[in-house]
Simulated scan of single mutants.
Amino acid sequence: MKLVKTTEAVGQVLCHDITQIIPGVKKDAVFRKGHIITEEDIPVLLSVGKDMIYIWENDETMLHENDAAEILYRMTAGENMHPSEVKEGKIEVIADSDGLLKVDRERLKKVNSFGELMIAARHGNTVVKKGDKLAGTRIIPLVIKKEKMEKASEICSDVPILKILPFTMKKAAVITTGNEVFYGRIKDGFTPVIEKKINEFGVEMVFHETFNDDDKKITKGCLDAVNTGVDIIFCTGGMSVDPDDKTPLAIKNTGADIISYGSPVLPGAMFLLSYYKKDDRIIPICGLPGCAMYNKRTIFDLVLPRLLANDMITSDELALLGEGGFCLNCDVCTFPNCGFGKGW
């Protein structure tokens, strides 16, 4: 790459895209990489502020920004993704399927710490749809040393930074608890909320039972649901510390591994997550606090995509939700396009 006066560049090969900005009209490349500069191009180049311009000189030790972006794309994209057209040295990663986006944050940090190159991605653990943009890649200068790109590539030699997990769970059970519902004193307003939210992920409620505040009956209901072959179980009600709230005890008595009873999320502090193991199956059993019934967004909305993608959640990960786990209950809810739940 060589810097020359624009007025002396006729016949030379342009080594990068030249962007023209017309406010309110367009921002696009007026000339593309590889364009051979003509006499008629000189006034246009000068009009976009290019008194000096880079022309291409062959150097086997260097990579052009477009070629480097291709390498960064391969480091970033996993299965069920495709690249955009290379434009001004940038490639975007686009989803080919719905699912849960996972980001390898450590590898992403290492790549972006190299200098002279970058990968910008969406938050991990978020729901993406086919056609969504997931990330963008480019180098900062116009050219970069091949050796540097080769070293950066080693970070992602075995696995890319991004992957999409499909939503694999299809059959759910809901165990409704509470004397007030069981004896018909109030209408069950919880189950319809759960059913609506899981239906958005293609999950069907195939098992539903209602019990009074009897922990033995609730335990048996959970185990009956497991034996019908459901993929996931949601228990509603009875999640506080009141003496007659027996759902946490009932879930524990199923023999499930309790991951956490309580989460640093508001709304959702009384959430319980456990995993029940039967043969080669692992069935999440969740205790949902009452806030999931009447608040727009809660801990339920944060964990649901991960559970339905069969993405195991640890207690350490739940602890990370303390940062970003405070919902502002905005008058107009924009979730997931907000900070709620972006801490893990």
Rank of each mutant, 00 (worst) to 15 (best):
I155Q: 10
I164H: 00
T176F: 02
E195C: 03
V203M: 06
M205W: 00
E200R: 14
P141L: 08
V206Y: 01
T191K: 10
C156P: 06
I186M: 02
I140T: 12
C156Q: 06
M205Y: 00
L162Y: 00
E154W: 07
I139F: 07
K187Q: 06
K196R: 15
P141V: 07
T191N: 03
I164A: 08
K196Q: 14
S157Q: 14
V193A: 09
L142T: 12
V174F: 08
E204F: 00
S157V: 09
G202A: 11
Y183K: 14
R185W: 12
I194W: 03
I198Y: 04
T191R: 15
E150F: 12
I194G: 01
S157H: 09
A152N: 04
G189P: 00
S153G: 14
V206S: 08
E180F: 01
T168W: 01
A152K: 01
T176G: 03
I161S: 00
I164V: 11
L162H: 05
P160N: 10
G189S: 15
R185I: 05
P141S: 08
F201Q: 08
I164M: 05
K163P: 00
N179V: 06
E150S: 10
A135W: 05
Y183R: 13
I139W: 03
P192T: 00
P192W: 02
N179C: 10
M169T: 04
M205I: 05
E147H: 11
K170H: 12
K196N: 13
I155F: 12
K197V: 04
V143I: 11
G189C: 09
V159H: 13
L142D: 03
A135C: 08
V174R: 02
Y183H: 15
I186L: 00
E200L: 14
K171S: 12
G136W: 01
R138G: 05
C156D: 09
E204V: 06
K197C: 06
G189E: 13
I194V: 15
A152P: 07
C156R: 05
P141H: 11
N179M: 10
V206L: 01
T191H: 09
V181E: 01
V193G: 05
K145G: 11
T176P: 00
I175D: 06
G189I: 12
I175Y: 06
I161W: 03
